[in-house]
Amino acid sequence: MSTLIAYLFVLLGGAAGALSRFGVQELFRAFTRWPGWVAVFFVNVLGSFLIGLVVAWLQGLIALEHSERLDPLQLYIDTQDADHGLALLAAGFCGAFTTFSSFSLDNHFLAKESRALLLFNMLGSLITCLAAVALGWSVGKAMAG
């Protein structure tokens, strides 16, 4: 995959991802009374699930085609499509949809507010996101067949 195309896909996916995160944050603000860090927590869990699903699915499809010994040109084309999908959806969309900087900034404020909430956000985000990515991975694998 040419580098320029990869950057374009990441850029487009990133723009959509950041906007979706902004949308979720605005929805949380409009419809709930929860503090801002809850929205970031939710976004990170959802994005972790999605990246697990997308990567396992696309990599699984390509691995399957390798094992089926398609003709080389078709395999090359499909691998390229999968790489484009990964750049757009994984590195671009999911990468920008989730955020580590806002998470750290929230932790900075929570540290002032309460130790319990700080620990809840840190450990809770870690455990839930790892569980979400593992769940997404198994769903994606099942989808690839």
């Binding site: 995160r21 999911c94 989730t98 806002s102 985000s125």
Partner: peptide
């Protein structure tokens, strides 16, 4: 800068995926 550049630059999903 915050919601856009830094939010897009940092990522929790890739971090989760690579840990997995």
């Amino acid at each position: 800068f915050i919601t856009g550049i830094l939010g897009g630059m940092t990522t929790f999903s890739l971090f989760s995926l690579l840990t997995l």
